[in-house]
Design a protein around this nucleic acid. Sequence first.
DNA 1: CTGTTAGCGCATTCAG
DNA 2: CTGAATGCGCTAACAG
Lengths: 343, 343
Amino acid sequence: MAVTIKDVAKAANVSPSTVSRVISDSRHISDKTKKKVRKVMEELGYHINLNARGLVRQSTKTIGIVLKYSENEAWNWINPFVSEVIQGISAHCHEHGYSIMITTGRTEKEIYSDVVKMVQGKQVDGMIVLYARKEDRVVPFLLEAAIPFVVIGKPVDRIHEVMYVDNDNVQAAKDATAFLLNQYHRKIGFIGDNPSFQVIQDRLEGYYKALELEGISKNPAYVKFVQNPEDEEKILDKFLKLEHPPTALVISSPLQGVGVLKRILNHGLHVPEDISVVVFNKTLITEVSIPKLTAIDTQTYQLGYEASKGVIELIHYPDTFKRSVIISARIEPKESHRSLQEN
Amino acid sequence: MAVTIKDVAKAANVSPSTVSRVISDSRHISDKTKKKVRKVMEELGYHINLNARGLVRQSTKTIGIVLKYSENEAWNWINPFVSEVIQGISAHCHEHGYSIMITTGRTEKEIYSDVVKMVQGKQVDGMIVLYARKEDRVVPFLLEAAIPFVVIGKPVDRIHEVMYVDNDNVQAAKDATAFLLNQYHRKIGFIGDNPSFQVIQDRLEGYYKALELEGISKNPAYVKFVQNPEDEEKILDKFLKLEHPPTALVISSPLQGVGVLKRILNHGLHVPEDISVVVFNKTLITEVSIPKLTAIDTQTYQLGYEASKGVIELIHYPDTFKRSVIISARIEPKESHRSLQEN
DNA sequence: CTGTTAGCGCATTCAG
DNA sequence: CTGAATGCGCTAACAG
């Protein structure tokens, strides 16, 4: 067995509680004893057992992260969104001494039970959910369990009861579409992935809104959902076979963006000469892409950072008003778009 | 407070120890009582406190993951290698009921203290280290602490004392180089990132070996290390200003691969017409790249999966022979190379 | 300023 | 097959 608080106490000729107080640097302990105890701890190689502390404190200083799953495994972790968000969460958690635990499940059901285990098992003090989607069981469970949590994305149900961090996706998509409209595009397509995620719905809405403002009516043929990379080919085919193919596309993920880029080339067309492309989420990928993709910077890292700030605040002050945070997103013009009017 | 084993015991008219036995499905309990107790657990909404269990069992069923850090933050998580490895680890851990905790630190020092906290704090039963590098303090610490762990990559020191999972990077780089030699390239460059990582050293060695077999002597001008994306430009400049610029490149990361691709285009050159490129680590990125990059499939997911298998085996059978695992890597010819002899 | 006492929730002897 | 007793390592009153 490892050396415990008792061993230290004995060796230092003090009581265990004194040692405990030294550990938490209580100000009710004289500097002299602190020094003495710390020396003994050093000598004995003492280290606190966080498990035991967790048990008595009813807190583990750990945040659980519910990963976004998708039908298509590959798109999950590889999607740079997840990586960047976690970076942001990590950074803030580290500043506050919190550890991070992540779900390991791959299906919706597995992830749900991971969450139950973390929460009911008292492994975490709070949770961050990396997605918002319809008919999801995780958020209702967390509400029921009354554990601090923050959703990244816009919750679908019971929105007033949950704290969330999100971009204004409606606005962002509206901006992106308006950006293309300003460049005299009138036939603009929209490509999203899984429409059951709220984020896709919001972006679609923003896209429609921008068109509406220009008096352009909804055209379902210009809206497609790609659930796996293979579909990209078909979708582009369909677009191009239209009597009036789109001259520009708004695409809801960077990976899809580069995918579509490639398909366009396959068709012997060029970006931005033949088709302009604006994608959601500026990431390293959009930067290394050729051409660089004109992308909407959703400040993913910041999203994670703020989410972490949120949970930790909720943990410390449970009665905090659940003020949700909107992270601004703005378009960064790069090389994948052009104006139709080459004045 | 949540409902505990005692509450269940009381409600079911049994002793706490009986409830405990029902939880672990002990075969010393009659089916009748099991049923009865389970019913009560259900009604009361009982869930085990894993913290308490951890304390008494001296095991948390949690694996810690030590993330690879790099000077350049962005390259860390975004690097798909990490994502894929974690997917593999996740999958296996989930199968065995293990949770995953990740380090949150960004600098070497922070990560080290994260590790100490996890291990000494008894938060984890085992560890997986996602890198192997010189003068690293983590591995020695882990050895000292005598906790089960597996390194992904080839350990630098005390290699016989640690279990590791790795590709044969020497062989893989040799194959990659030989592949280019077979295509009649004679001036082959090598680009790696941080040379303090063992993996880079190994690949460099393999590269040299292949050249040697063809009687081509080492040329330092053909070997460059890129520590951040900006350097790519300079390095390519240097390569191209040589009297005999390389006609092919072996590159040690997919992100660097696409980066270099882009720089080559900037110079008005084309891949594979002017320069052939072979990169390490087939990932989604190499697939969506234009052209698709001829890449070495290092089976990253499998690397993680095997590492997890390793730790969990070590946890269950501490005296397991530390048999290390080599995951085969093979080159997947795509579109970024060509033969110099167009017969 | 420090020691004593009493658990946190669970698993595991040892009896019966 | 089940119950009573004990302790995992730590913290938090409550005394002094």
